[in-house]
């Protein structure tokens, strides 16, 4: 897997733009890339060549640009990082959106993995720790505002809502068990199933912080076989969907 920061900032930006264009309009044309990056078409070409040499994009002189799976992976991680940093700045530090967006653009390229990991851990701690840090933080943010120009809190919604897991899933911080490929593993964050299935999973040892490895899929794609606590278990994908993990790297 390619590391973030191995490319130049500009090339990483290109990669993200291509990724976004493919997501939005299903294809990335050189002209659209140039428009979005705000450069001329002639300066796009060398960048694409570079990326193609790194085996991140498929590019032929004319026409449409596509991402290799490696390129897709890197772009998704970059964007996830961007989104996380922006959210972190806005929700925990109360930075206004424009500034948060601009800073996130810089952070995403230059922040060391170590700092990123610590930021994630801190966010996790604030969000999941049961010791009411959450409400302390809300007080803190409210006070920040009062100390400023005395306006009402700009974030009427609590930043730590129930869908936080879905958000973290977008940032690549958590994944459902069903989305892991054979050979991948992760540590259980939580189980979001109905009572009966949850109890069954608990009894089989599927509990927070247990490491689960996906062994294989059944020949028809469902169910899947996993390994935990030294034994093998099979689950349907619909049950595996309810198990949320921190993927191991």
């Amino acid at each position: 897997m390619m590391k973030i920061g191995a490319l130049s900032e500009s090339l990483e930006d290109y990669l993200e733009i291509i990724y976004q264009l493919i997501q939005e309009t299903k294809e990335a044309r050189i002209k659209d890339i140039a428009d979005r990056k705000n450069v001329s078409m002639s300066s796009v070409i060398p960048a694409l060549r570079r990326l193609s040499k790194e085996n991140l994009v498929n590019y032929k002189t004319r026409g449409i640009v596509t991402l290799t799976s490696q390129g897709q992976n890197l772009a998704a991680r970059l964007l996830g990082r961007h989104e996380f940093v922006k959210y972190f700045l806005m929700s925990l530090l109360d930075v206004p959106e424009e500034i948060a967006e601009r800073d996130a653009c810089l952070f995403e390229h230059y922040m060391s993995p170590e700092t990123f990991r610590k930021m994630v851990m801190f966010f996790e701690f604030v969000d999941t720790c049961g010791m009411n840090i959450r409400s302390h933080f809300e007080d803190y943010i409210a006070n920040l505002d009062k100390q400023g120009d005395g306006e009402i809190c700009p974030a009427p919604e609590c930043p730590f809502k129930n869908d936080s897991f879905r958000r973290r899933q977008r940032w690549g911080m958590v994944k459902t068990l069903s989305s892991l490929s054979p050979g991948e593993s992760g540590r259980v964050a939580r189980v979001q199933a109905d009572t009966a299935i949850r109890q069954r999973l608990i009894d089989m040892g599927v509990l927070p912080n247990v490491v689960i490895t996906v062994e294989r899929m059944a020949p028809l794609g469902d169910p899947i076989e996993i390994k935990l606590r030294g034994y093998h278990l099979s689950l349907r994908k619909e049950e595996a969907d309810a198990i949320i993990l921190y993927p191991s790297t």
Binding site: A196, I197, R200, L201, M204, P223, E225, Y231, H232, L233, S234, L235, R236, E239
Partner: peptide, 10 residues
């Protein structure tokens, strides 16, 4: 409910 498929592969 369909029987959940949580089955040990011994």
């Amino acid at each position: 409910e369909a029987e959940p498929f949580v089955m040990e592969l011994p």
